[in-house]
């Protein structure tokens, strides 16, 4: 996956990025890993927020594409139904915070904020990967998820970090994709090619 100089410039200026990928297994984690690696803004720690996929599985996919130097933490949102539905791994061997309900976005927001604050105290710049907005939309209505995404972008901006919000474009109508594009500074679309656009050019 490669992108042109224009794409690098757009992403260097962006805090919140909507990552549109096809519904291929691990596509979100792989794309986020590659984008964080290629990005001009270095991150000391990557924090993954995982919902339907386990933290461990996300990290496995991440490690196939990213170098070993970045520290990784996870915020695993699991209401207890995942292990009964899939067998994709248990607790991972990295710091994992648990949030019990994907419907409780206020708790999720505060948990992410606390992780960002601790990283900031340690002078770490954080790259956050939310995997995924599609999963959150299975549990919470669109207006609420939009406000969560917008507000989390604002919180990450204060720490000089970056947040990638993964959305499975094929799972939603055009209006939903456009709505979430408006909550972010830039949009990366992976559909064979890599297209990077500023929000104002979407």
């Amino acid at each position: 996956m490669t992108m042109g100089d224009d794409g690098h410039e757009v992403l260097a200026d962006a805090t919140s990025v909507l990552l549109l990928t096809p519904a291929v297994r691990d596509a979100g984690a792989s794309a986020a890993a590659t984008l964080f690696e290629q990005g001009s803004k270095p991150h000391d720690r990557v924090v993954a927020v995982t919902v339907s996929q386990s933290a461990e599985r996300w990290v496995q996919a991440w490690k196939r594409h990213a170098g070993p130097l970045t520290e990784i933490s996870c915020i695993d949102v699991d209401d207890g139904t995942r292990s009964a539905r899939t067998a994709d791994g248990g607790c991972a061997t990295m710091p994992v915070e648990q949030v019990a309900s994907p419907s409780d976005l206020e708790t999720l927001g505060r948990t992410v904020s606390n992780v960002l604050e601790r990283a900031s105290d340690d002078d770490e710049r954080v790259g956050l990967a939310v995997h995924s907005v599609t999963d959150l939309l299975h549990h919470v209505d669109e207006p609420t998820v939009f406000k969560f995404v917008y507000t989390l972008g604002e919180v990450v901006r204060r720490t000089d970090g970056t947040v990638y919000f993964h959305l499975d474009a094929g799972a939603h109508g055009t209006e939903t994709v456009n709505t979430f594009a408006a909550a972010c500074d830039a949009i990366v679309e992976l559909d064979g090619d890599v297209t990077v656009r500023e929000q104002s050019n979407w």
Partner: peptide, 17 residues
């Protein structure tokens, strides 16, 4: 203000579509 913003974003998304 965020509620107002969301409503306008929805209007914009419809016009885009």
């Amino acid at each position: 203000t965020l509620e107002e913003y969301y409503e306008l974003v929805q209007a914009s998304a419809e016009l885009h579509a």
